[in-house]
Design a protein around this nucleic acid. Structure first.
Lengths: 222, 222
DNA sequence: TGGATACTTCGGCCGTGGCCGAAGCATTTG
DNA sequence: CAAATGCTTCGGCCACGGCCGAAGTATCCA
């Protein structure tokens, strides 16, 4: 047991595992970037994670795709995060980049930060979405609203992943909307050019069109 | 997050946390024995665990009693165990103590092992309890049955914690009943003197009265 | 076929963190 | 008040494990 915990207990490996948390499979190079260490160091970490069956690998050409071995690993990571969040507030140097990332960012493939939590709040207030502790659901009114916005809900339903789930935001410490719905909504916002990615970061910039759009659609000023 | 995992990821600290897993409060010296290191080393570990709010301490005379800060820490430990057990099979010397703990033990504050899983199985078979993946519920028939047994269900409902939830058993690899209901049921069994704690262990001994009681109440021979 | 890309293995350097002996407080007991 | 007990702090030793540079496989592409 200590071995498993020790594997998660190193920043580089924790970053790798978090990057895999949404179930996608990523290549070793992508994970090296996420971990912030060199490719050969990452390779060593991945070998250890594989040895403990925390991640699986599948070869495709010259790429190797890594993924979590199963939901139980994801649940473990979530439970560790939950404990970490109840811990003592940590010292966090404020910086320009920090403010950006607190303001709006992606959480794997959906929105987080003030933007993500704000959207979730509005959708909940309008009875478009119901979020429980472990799961969530889109109401009929919510489905109509999102469809009107151009979000591909039927595509989202067809995917094998969880349709709608709450995802605790690590800056706001409140839930935002994850799962296939969260991803589909984020996709649509990218299409509409409401947000743009910041290079080499998970941070997002909200375009002028985005400011108008989020205000019109969600009555949300960001 | 990596910090929390790193704390759990050392054998000495993992032992300390496991020793606390049944919810009892233990003194620093007892924990030093459980961890297998000297008192001063243990003191250092405990200071770190306390710093991360994984354990709480309360002074009583010249003793200091340590306990887990809450159920969320216990759940995290269980989920790590669950992952550790799905990993590559490890060499495990079988011992008398091992058999005991596999047979019947406490899991935080409810029953686990063959006993815990057996009880869960019978309650499910009789439609007294329904267990999902993340949550569970007690049926009306179940409430009547447990009340007849003397379990304090209304007290359990009044508490702020999750009422009924499945808890994956790390030896049986199947769910047993946790949450407030699991705790209340365990309490009642202690009251009835059906089980007794084994010193310095989470293992339980089923008394002769317990053998009769579990057979009569649950049709369960343990 | 040869070079580029993706990934792993090897080897050596270095720092963090664990460990215990000794000493220092705090509390209880005689 | 002194001795014993429970626990923590301090200091120094040591080793495990992380990190990267360099070199070695495997695969793709022109």
């Amino acid at each position: 047991m200590a071995e498993v915990a020790a594997l998660v207990g190193h920043p580089a490996r924790a970053n790798i595992l978090c990057a895999l948390l949404d179930g996608r499979a990523l290549t070793a190079t992508e994970l090296a970037y996420a971990a912030g260490v060199s490719a050969q160091t990452t390779s060593g970490h991945l070998a250890k994670l594989r040895g403990a069956r925390l991640v699986d690998v599948c070869k495709q050409g010259r790429h190797r795709y890594y993924r979590l071995t199963g939901a139980h690993v994801g649940q473990m990571l979530e439970s560790i995060m939950a404990v970490a969040l109840t811990g003592p507030p940590r010292f966090q140097p404020r910086s320009k980049a920090d403010d950006l990332i607190r303001h709006a960012r992606t959480c794997y493939d959906h929105f987080a930060g003030e933007l993500g939590v704000g959207i979730a709040d509005r959708l909940i207030a309008r009875d478009c979405v119901v979020l429980g502790n472990e799961a969530g659901e889109v109401t009929d009114a919510g489905a109509a609203f999102l469809t009107r916005l151009g979000v591909d809900l039927s595509g989202a339903r067809a995917r094998r992943r969880v349709f709608c789930r709450p995802c605790v935001d690590w800056t706001e410490r409140r839930p935002h909307i994850g799962g296939a719905v969260g991803a589909a909504l984020a996709n649509r916002c990218f299409e509409l050019n409401w947000v743009e990615r910041v290079r080499d970061s998970r941070a997002l910039i909200i375009t002028p069109a985005g400011h108008r759009g989020f205000m019109e659609a969600f009555d949300l000023s960001v």
